[in-house]
Amino acid sequence: MALNEKRFDGRVAIITGAGGGLGRDYALLLASRGARVVVNDLGTSRQGEGADIGMAAAVVAEIRAAGGEAVANGDSVATAVGCAGIVKTALDTWGKVDILIHNATINRRGPFRDLSFQDFSAVLDVHLSGAFHLAKEVFPRMCDAGYGRIVFVASIAGLYGERNVAAYCTAKGAINGLSNALALEGLDHGVGVNCIVPAAKTRLVEGRDVEGFPPWGPELVAPALAWLAHEDCKASGKLLVSLAGRMAEAFPAETRGVFQPEWSIEDVAARSDEIFDRAHVETFSSVPRGFHEHLGFSFEMARAGTAND
């Protein structure tokens, strides 16, 4: 064991969508550092069709062959019943859940004008509803136990948008909001909640032109995810970007803005360059008081502007 090696001995982790791609690397890394892992994967296609628990079973076999502990689960993250089944697997096997990593994903590509509500809902069910149902199962338990780590998998598409994947963008963007809310509620209970914003060469990019990309395999992302899941990580309410060897923090920012005691449509138009001027920006961290700091900043500008009139 390396000096100061970050270990997960005694910790129980649930990792959804761990039968391949990024999830597989997450599972293998945590297990190699001592975590007991529920490897969840329904075994669907990229579009969420079909089912094959063999994908999860294969990862479990890898972990066990390397001397680790793992169990396969094939329940769907898209339903409350399925999420309860995933958590029950951890509780029945090891009696607790210390770490939740919600990585399961599907995508339905196509222009928004052709996107059916059925496809839209299917994508949201896996990403956003899955995050909700899993968190409902584990978050109260973690708070009662005084410890927990939750990592939701967000996306560059959720931050900045992307063509022809409106449902995916919507779901991934909303996950960040849920993460921030839980980070605040878990603050006094030892429960850290963060998002990772990864990108890697997996089957989700099949069919896309990635010729000329630098190395960007899942193994370059897994350490970032593992750090967010570790007991030594005290960060909460963060967006950790990881792809192709680059790691960074993403966060909301605002222009400083301008104040007037009264506005007309014409005033907004006339001052739009000032409003959108990014020469000076303000940032507010969700934890511990970003919401209130935002209000305070805006109100102070209003008070100062009124006093100067």
Rank of each mutant, 00 (worst) to 15 (best):
M247V: 15
R141C: 11
Q47W: 01
S236Q: 09
D119V: 03
V241C: 10
A61D: 10
T44N: 03
G48R: 03
G245K: 09
A65I: 03
E274Y: 06
A58R: 08
G85S: 03
Q118P: 04
G17M: 01
S286K: 04
R11E: 07
A304N: 14
A13I: 02
V138P: 08
T79W: 04
V81S: 08
N4L: 15
H292Q: 13
N308F: 15
A35C: 05
H189Q: 14
D209T: 05
S286A: 15
V60N: 01
D232A: 11
A57S: 11
A84P: 00
V123Q: 01
S272Y: 13
V151N: 09
S236P: 07
P214W: 07
D188W: 12
G21M: 01
E206H: 02
E300I: 09
W216R: 06
L30W: 01
A61S: 11
D75A: 01
V191W: 12
R289K: 12
T44S: 06
V71M: 00
G82P: 07
I196C: 09
L128W: 09
E219N: 05
V193D: 02
C143F: 13
G296D: 09
G217Y: 11
G74Q: 01
V281R: 05
E282T: 13
L184H: 15
V258W: 04
S298R: 13
G186K: 07
A269M: 08
G148A: 06
A250L: 07
R7Y: 13
L134N: 06
E231D: 15
P198T: 03
G212K: 12
G146Y: 04
